[in-house]
Design a protein around this nucleic acid. Structure first.
Lengths: 112, 112
DNA sequence: CTTAATGGTTGATAATTTTAAACCATTAAA
DNA sequence: TTTAATGGTTTAAAATTATCAACCATTAAG
C-alpha cells in the first residue's frame, strides 16, 4: 500500500476529530475540562453553561459530538452526568501520527 | 502565564487550521498536492477539478482558504497559477506542539 | 488588435451546522 | 407518591459555509 493511500485513510479517520477540535466553543469546553479541579471529577452540563456562554442543549450537543469522537466520556451519579476527558485519547495519538506522516512524505520528496 | 492560558492561545491559533484540515474535500486537495509528480511543480485550479470532483470556483475557494492558513502557496507562470504545499508549514509544527501540550497537562494531573 | 485561455470575484442558492424552546424520562428528596 | 432537579431529545429557526452561474481581468497566441 502506497504512502499516499495510507495518508488518505489517516485523513479520513481524523476528519471528525479535526472539525471537533477546530470549533472555538468546543475548545472552550475542552479547556474547562482540563482544569486541575475538574479533570478527575468531570463537569455536568449545567455547570458548563456558566463557564462557556452556551445553553444547556448546546452544551449537550457538543458533548455528544466530543464523545462520538472519543475525546470525552461520562459517568452517571444518580441523575447527574459527569463528563471528563478521555485520558490518552487514541485520536490524539493518531492525529500526531498523521502530521508526522505528512511531514515525512514532504521530506522524502524534498530530498530528490 | 498558566499552562491553561497558554493552551487556550494555542487552541485559538490552530482553530482555522484544524477546520481547514478537517474538510474531506480539502483533504483530497492536499493529497493530490502531496503526489510525487506534482509536489514540486504544483497544480493549477483547472487540473484539480478533474482529480477532485469540484467546480473551478469551489477549488479556487478552497485554495484561498488553505493559503490563508499557510498550508499552500502558489506562483504564477503567465496566466497559470501553480499551487503547491508549503514545505514544513509552521502550522503543522504548532499543531503538533498543541497536541503534546494537551497530553502533558493530562499526564501532569494524572500523577497526583 | 482580436481572440482564446486561465483563473479570480461576486452574488444568489443550497447544504450543513449550531442554537434554543419545548418536551420527555429518570432519579432523588420531601 | 408527589414534587423538584437533572439532562437528553426533537423540531424549528438562525447562522455559517460551500457551491455554482455569470462576469471580469489578465495574459498569450494568432
Amino acid at each position: 500500500m502506497s504512502d499516499l493511500i495510507k495518508l488518505k485513510h489517516e485523513f479520513e479517520h481524523s476528519s471528525d476529530f479535526l472539525v471537533a477540535l477546530g470549533d472555538p466553543k468546543r475548545q472552550a469546553i475542552i479547556l474547562a475540562l482540563l482544569d486541575k479541579k475538574v479533570i478527575h471529577r468531570g463537569l455536568r452540563v449545567n455547570e458548563l453553561t456558566d463557564v462557556v456562554a452556551l445553553s444547556r442543549p448546546a452544551v449537550s450537543h457538543h458533548f455528544k459530538l466530543l464523545k462520538a469522537v472519543g475525546l470525552i466520556d461520562y459517568h452517571r451519579v444518580g441523575t447527574k452526568n459527569y463528563y471528563y476527558l478521555t485520558h490518552r485519547s487514541q485520536q490524539i495519538q493518531q492525529l500526531e501520527t498523521l502530521l508526522t506522516h505528512v511531514q515525512a512524505v514532504m521530506d522524502t520528496n524534498e530530498r530528490l
